[in-house]
């Protein structure tokens, strides 16, 4: 047993983090918030970087990697708040023409929601009666459909990996802010009440990380659903606590905290939701 990232896996994760920093850094994120819409150029750049083709077999022109590598890049995507129907396009890369290269944007009905419907080239699931809703997340347009489409555990696993990345981003932001912002003549991070909030941010990410990585390695569908449950919780609650650490600044449109919280709320409703996950895990006891 060696349940740690291999050197190759670390290199893959670091490489992808670098690409995202260059192509979708903070300025690009805020520009996207101001002018929503799918950035096709960014999408093609992701394709070129091998993001969508990561798990397509080498014989079919892909990189032939496994689920463990997939969760690492999705974690980075979640950390950077990368917008777009990433999961649907990624999972379609093997059989939808152009999805692997980022030419074709694929979305899918997930539960009773469809993200990015108007911008997608290919849609999986029945969207004939789709109605738009005013999405809480400025970077995820949403439609609602009357019928339910259950997602497989692969969808939940990738969403969980994004939630994990988001939970880590909120943790890092809170810890950074707590070390810089001063009140009463000292960094707020020196106050124990703030310190303990920050500690819990880490205590939430680490079990979620172990669950997400293990589910990817074992391919066990139940572990994927359990990982989603823990990662949803980590992403939502870490964003909430980060907001608290930021004080008034956390309640502004300017700070990125709300973007993480809103996206985490959206992802929690996609794939296997908490109530379903809990029932599924209970049934297996």
């Amino acid at each position: 047993m060696d349940f740690q990232l291999s050197a190759d896996q670390r290199a893959l994760r670091d490489g992808f983090r670098e690409i995202l920093r260059a192509r979708f850094g903070r300025d690009a994120l805020r520009a996207a918030v101001d002018a929503p819409g799918l950035d096709r150029e960014l999408w093609r750049a992701l394709g070129k970087a091998g993001f969508f083709a990561l798990c397509v077999p080498e014989a079919r022109g892909g990189l032939g990697q496994g689920a463990a590598e997939a969760v690492l890049v999705f974690e980075e995507a979640g950390r950077a708040l990368l917008p777009g129907p990433l999961v649907a396009t990624f999972l379609a890369a093997g059989d939808v023409e152009g999805a692997a290269t980022g030419e074709t944007v694929v979305t899918a009905v997930s539960g009773t929601l469809v993200p990015w419907l108007a911008e997608a080239d290919v849609v999986r699931g029945d969207v004939t009666a789709a109605e738009p809703l005013r999405s809480v997340d400025p970077l995820t347009p949403l439609h609602r459909v009357p019928g339910r489409r259950e997602d497989g555990p692969d969808v939940s696993l990738l969403l969980a990996a994004e939630q994990l990345g988001s939970a880590c981003a909120s943790r890092d932001a809170a810890v950074r802010y707590a070390g810089e912002r001063e009140q009463f003549g000292q960094p707020i991070g020196a106050f124990q009440a703030v310190k303990h909030l920050c500690a819990e941010l880490l205590v939430r990410t680490e079990p979620a990380r172990a669950a997400v990585y293990a589910a990817a390695v074992t391919g066990d569908p139940r572990e994927a659903v359990a990982a989603k449950l823990l990662a949803d919780d980590a992403a939502v609650r870490n964003a909430r606590d980060c907001l608290q650490v930021y004080g008034g600044m956390g309640f502004t449109w300017e700070a990125d905290v709300h973007l993480h919280l809103k996206r985490a709320w959206v992802r929690a409703r996609l794939g296997t939701t908490a109530a379903r996950a809990e029932e599924e895990l209970a049934a297996a006891l």
Binding site: P207, Y213, A227
Partner: peptide
């Protein structure tokens, strides 16, 4: 009650994985 037990199942599953993660880390 069912949902509570379901969540605890995820929780202890993750704690076991975390124990494996920590053991591998200690191995290194």
């Amino acid at each position: 009650l069912r949902r509570r037990l379901g969540r605890l199942s995820a929780e202890f599953g993750a704690l076991w994985r975390l124990a494996q993660w920590n053991a591998s880390e200690a191995q290194h």
